[in-house]
Write a protein that binds this DNA or RNA. Structure first.
Lengths: 339, 339
DNA sequence: ATGCAAAACGAAAACGGTTTCGTGTTAATA
DNA sequence: TATTAACACGAAACCGTTTTCGTTTTGCAT
């Protein structure tokens, strides 16, 4: 087992001081040609690589960024991570992923674990429990310590920091508008309780589109599930007890399940019922029929978040100016609506 | 901005030495009741938390584990990460995720980045390019430095380390056997080139099951795609040019797409054609009809990998004994086969 | 030979902890 | 009263770097 070599080892072997070795490896002007070549050759030979931890301690910079998200087994979050990872890696950063699993406590614990020097900044999306409680002290503590935070998708106005979201209201709006344009009148919405920031916005977009086109909002056509978790019974109960000609869902699972239910009841999609979901995942693409969705561009969101975070981390002056970037959702038309 | 407090700060305020503070916080017997209470109270008041980096440098233990995988936007890898994350977190470890994106170079770079002190061990699944090249020097270097490695799913025999796989051959075997039992005779296999360790095993299981039941293996019924990437044209070309009564696919996307193709051509599933895939993801569950799959139990695999790694990291003696854990796949029966 | 500036290098502090070992004080014992 | 053990604490080394600030050496002009 050949153990890692350190500056001290090189210094001892070459009978120079540690400082000389350090400088030689950085090609410092202070060191003579001769010595530099000797040191560099030796370092290369023994494959010297500086110890990241020591450098982190010295610089107070870890080149790690902490990502705290509610769940990883969801296409949207997965694509965001990919975006973050790609961008961060290109700038020499590593990504530490922590899952809150929609739990407030885990979110707090994870942040505390990372906030003690392990990372230079956070990128996160709030757990549903956190949004429900409305308790953001763990975020406050972190920002007060000067650790930059970028919130994406599930955000809160209570914390001053950079934010990245898609225009959820607009997404629901264009989807609903599309349905109306195609002559649909009885449009249902399957969403979750309003405490989830995204659900609230989407519900608003849905209502706005209806009102604009002179269709009365019928609250009995809106199903608010307690969480994003699949609840087949509720959806079944909801859909089978009314006559509808279109369904808008806040994720793709709800949408695909709705399609299957309709089909089982002898309804044709999209002839009898149009369906639109959120999240352009693998499910939408390969569902039968393929699902029209509001694409959230998770990878882009991840990139933008990472860029904002790293820019802030590396900026010398600590400007107290924060921005919220709003990405535009787009409608991906597939076979679950007529076209 | 209230900056983090250090031992030195506490020592200065309380007019004691740094050593005393350190010991007091650890409830050392050496320190008097009085002093301990004073120090602990002060620390609590100012919310003192030791700096992880400093501790890492001292202990030469980071409590981070590096996970290097080819892709994150795949249900299987996602569930593995979740398993790793849950288990590792419970034991006080953080997870650094790096994506090789199926590229050999990225895999190497990522490992080098992490191997210089950032992590205590690796959990990884090889990129397809790495398996294709058969170049494992980056893994050798790491293990020679005494950094523990656990390989999962996409492994190699060229490296001595702990490994976790599912019995891919068995998975394909039971799936094929199931199809045969139901009277299917013309069973196609859609897989990838043999350099991918998992594909090779699955092909073997498929052939074994056929031979055991007296069905001749017809190579023209085997489609070997170059990668796991979706290639609709090839699959379409392959499926539409022969009469089949069943299809086995090495992932769920190939399988779902095969179902749609068959349906478009007027074939009923499962009456005319049975389909089985690998990976029990969201796609299988919500496809129409729902897809029978060989479940790979990714989360379990992640847990087991994390446990093996952390056990090795924390074991004092460096035993040079490695084990390979083989998890049993299970067949999840759904509507894409008769039952 | 002398003086001096430039060149080349080393000592030491710093980052924030842990830990070993030494030392001063107090109290108990002879 | 002298001796000693227990107690409470501090100094310093260490982990592996970087960096400032001397100090020594060299070369050159005088």
């Amino acid at each position: 087992m050949k153990t890692k070599i350190t500056l001290k080892d090189i210094a001892r072997e070459l009978e120079v001081s540690i400082s000389t070795v350090s400088k030689a490896l950085k090609n410092s002007e202070e060191i003579s040609r001769d010595t530099k070549e000797k040191v560099q050759a030796f370092a290369r030979l023994y494959n010297y690589k500086p110890n990241n931890i020591a450098i982190s301690l010295k610089n107070k910079r870890t080149k790690n960024i902490g990502v705290v998200i509610p769940d990883i087994v969801h296409h949207f979050f997965t694509t965001v991570i990919r975006g973050i990872e790609k961008y961060a890696n290109a700038r020499g950063y590593n990504v530490i992923v922590c899952l809150s699993e929609e739990s407030f406590d885990k979110e707090v614990i994870n942040m505390e674990m990372l906030a003690n020097g392990s990372i230079d900044g956070f990128i996160m999306s709030l757990s549903s429990e956190t949004q429900q409680k409305g308790d953001y002290n763990h975020l406050k503590e972190v920002t007060e310590q000067g650790i930059p935070v970028v919130l994406f998708d599930r955000i809160t106005n209570e914390i001053e920091c950079d934010k990245v979201i898609i225009d959820d209201e607009l997404g629901a709006y264009i989807a609903t508008k599309k349905l109306v344009e195609q002559g649909r009148k009885k449009i249902a919405l399957i969403t979750t309780d309003d405490y989830l920031s995204v659900s609230k916005s989407r519900t608003m977009g849905y209502k706005k589109a209806l009102m604009e086109t002179g269709i009365e909002v019928d609250e009995s056509r809106i199903l608010k599930l307690p969480t994003m978790e699949m609840d087949e019974a509720s959806i079944k109960d909801f859909l089978e007890n009314q006559k509808l000609d279109a369904v808008l869902c806040v994720n793709e699972i709800f949408a695909v399940y709705s399609m299957r239910l309709a089909q089982k009841n002898g309804l044709r999609i999209p002839e009898d019922v149009s369906v639109i979901g959120f999240t352009d995942g693998v499910l939408s693409k390969y569902a039968n029929p393929s699902l029209t969705v509001v694409a959230q561009h998770g990878e882009k969101m991840g990139e933008v978040s990472a860029q904002m975070l790293i820019d802030k981390v590396e900026s010398e002056e600590d400007e107290e100016t924060y921005q919220t970037k709003i990405l535009e959702p787009t409608l991906v038309i597939r076979d679950s609506i007529v076209h």
